[in-house]
Design a binder for these strands. Structure first.
Lengths: 196, 196
DNA sequence: TTTACATACATACAGTTTGTATGTTAAAAT
DNA sequence: ATTTTAACATACAAACTGTATGTATGTAAA
């Protein structure tokens, strides 16, 4: 019953894919491992062979989603002509990405609670948050931003966007208004406050 | 074994107090109801008599903490002379309150995950967030702020502060730097971007 | 080419925890 | 004085995670 590398990797990816669906749909706590492996035509034995435990599986899913969003942000930001436009584009891309296919629950709700805030932060820094920080640092060095703590700025902005994502996603379910644009306008003005 | 109103209320408050400790210390998922009631010299029967379930107990704890912080914010904000100073004072008070005795875990980490974001928001609006919104609205009417979506502003600022709390709390555990001041400076500049 | 071993699972079970159903006792209400 | 109800305790069912163990199969070395 031993499979080759490729088949094994497919098994793992398939579990992640199914788990991702269950986590987004029911949330971490309500997602039963039994249901996940059943859908993959496996048993929990297989799951515990490939992942350390439920948290380990969630971590794999979390990283997948975060990487996806992170890549989208980088790609969009790169389209900007100057650093300011890059920053704004990156922010918009983050909002879009995090809202897509209800990623918010994994990324922003269960993420911190399941992984713990410190682990969550480390993951976040690896992907989305770090690129924001670097961008801000660059802009400060270019003399575009006021000489205040980059780290504090990064966290405040990141927090503002995270909450914006949750708010927008909630509103999109109800109304059709251009709530996304409202958020971006506010973000732009907030960022304006950091301009020199 | 029937007790009078006062004794019953004491029992409930005692459970909440002990549960609050367990939730902050171990987090919602790892806090066992059995341990909580044991410390209160009760059994789970008593707990399920007074609260609907584990989530219901958490909700009670959550509301207690949020109310505490909310009151602190209101009190501090009231000390300000003009609306701008009130806003800043309120923000600072929120950071202080949320950091105090590791309230962040209940308020910002487990809160959304356990209650769900919509319930969390409703609670949040009832206390801290609403006062922020009203203050911003007032200031906009006074012509102090730019004419952009108050709701978007409120959520972005609230998010910025929430994340700031987590960041500050994390940093306070390691360094002794005046990281709180850094956060407030950034917040002031961000708010500055909303000024007319 | 056999033998040893690792890998990819399945199966069965133990442990923990939530929630519920059912007492029991004592104070309030009638 | 009797009935009712509130404040618990006790016992139990159900769900779920995690672990220990078994098994088949591919791979690599002797």
């Amino acid at each position: 019953m031993k499979k080759n590398k490729i088949e094994t990797e497919q098994t793992i990816q398939n579990i992640i894919k199914i788990a991702r669906y269950h986590f987004t749909e029911h949330g971490y706590a309500e997602a039963a491992l039994e249901d996940i492996v059943k859908e993959a035509n496996l048993t929990r034995g297989a799951l515990y062979h490939h992942f350390q435990n439920k948290k380990g599986l969630f971590l794999a899913v979390f990283e997948t989603v975060q990487q996806e969003v992170g890549e989208h942000v980088e790609a969009e930001a790169a389209k900007g002509n100057d650093s300011w436009e890059q920053l704004i584009r990156g922010c918009r891309a983050f909002l879009e990405g995090a809202i897509q296919s209800h990623n918010q629950r994994i990324l922003l709700i269960d993420g911190p609670a399941v992984l713990g805030w410190d682990t969550f932060r480390k993951m976040d820094e690896k992907y989305s948050m770090n690129s924001l920080k670097e961008q801000l640092q660059l802009m400060q060095e270019q003399g575009l931003l006021k000489p205040i703590s980059i780290e504090a700025m990064t966290h405040c902005l990141s927090g503002a966007m995270n909450e914006a994502v949750l708010w927008i996603a909630d509103r999109l379910d109800q109304e059709d208004e251009d709530v996304m644009e409202d958020a971006i306008i506010v973000l732009e003005h907030l960022l304006g406050g950091l301009k020199k």
